[in-house]
């Protein structure tokens, strides 16, 4: 007991611990990066898809969106929203809605890919709308990240943050972080304008430009931050908190050790 407490008080032990902690935290942050796999999917719906989708819709969606998706007081009409909208809302887990709130939250996906496809096929039959994008236009490696970055800063960064870390909107709504979002969902969000997001149709940002935006997002996501852990990419606030808590914390630990009497 005595030996332990003595060793714990050992000046080197404190330093070693601090360094270890710093190294570990830094290492973990630096190493953490999530790889993202593009989902391959070719979109050509059969009549059967639409039929199956109608059944699924009647069972799962019609209570809010109304029979025939014509809308009700609880949910908007889905006539003309297009397959892309369904694929985004259902495929990202936002729909079916878990509860009322400022906006739909992402949660575990409720339907299989097959079912999502069928629902999309059904809604697509109700009226013309944005289709699920081709795989070709989603290929980030074909895009120009520099052009995409410029478009992203002008059109997206004010809500989603320059590093796509997300940001606040009014009254509890927010623009989510785009980290981990699939190429397809990013594209679909731009063409359909989910929730309060404006629509960026092809006349505004061409499909090639959209691919550039995706290329930019995937580039910064994959490369990570050159300087080490990114502290959430939230800017000066997280940096300030970090220096006050961690930076000054370590400094204070050293000052206490420095001015304490040796045993």
């Amino acid at each position: 007991m005595k030996a332990l407490s003595q060793r714990r008080r050992h000046p080197l032990a404190a330093i070693a611990l601090l360094l270890m902690a710093l190294l570990m935290v830094g290492g973990i942050y630096s190493a953490a990066s999530s790889a993202n796999q593009a989902q391959a999917q070719t979109e050509s719906f059969s009549a059967n898809d639409a039929e199956e989708g109608e059944k699924l819709f009647a069972a799962n969606c019609a209570s809010c969106h109304g029979l025939g998706a014509s809308g009700s007081s609880a949910g908007p009409s889905l006539v003309g929203v297009g397959a892309a909208s369904v694929d985004f809302q259902v495929g990202s887990g936002r729909m079916p809605l878990q509860m009322d709130g400022p906006q739909a939250q992402v949660k575990p996906v409720q339907f299989t890919e097959e079912q999502t496809r069928q629902l999309a096929a059904y809604v697509a039959t109700l009226g013309a709308g944005p289709a699920i994008p081709d795989e070709e236009i989603l290929d980030a490696s074909e895009g120009d990240p520099a052009n995409g970055g410029e478009l992203f800063r002008v059109n997206c960064a004010m809500c989603h943050n320059a590093a796509a870390a997300g940001g606040a909107l009014t009254r509890g709504k927010f623009a989510p972080s785009l980290e981990g979002s699939s190429e397809k969902h990013i594209y679909e969000a731009m063409v359909t304008g989910p929730q309060n997001m404006p629509v960026f149709n092809d006349a505004n940002i061409s499909p090639e430009d959209k691919r550039d935006v995706i290329a930019f997002l995937k580039t910064i996501e994959e490369q990570g931050s050159p300087g080490g852990a990114d502290l959430g990419s939230l800017g000066p606030v997280s940096e300030g908190l970090f220096i006050w808590v961690a930076g000054l914390g370590v400094v204070i630990a050293f000052t206490v050790w420095l001015t304490s009497r040796s045993s």
Partner: peptide, 21 residues
């Protein structure tokens, strides 16, 4: 015109719900 490219915008390009810079 569009920011930053400077290409002109047709009224028909601006669909309901969209926003152009």
């Amino acid at each position: 015109t569009r920011d930053p490219s400077g290409t002109p915008i047709k009224a028909s390009d601006v669909t309901v719900g969209s926003a152009f810079h």
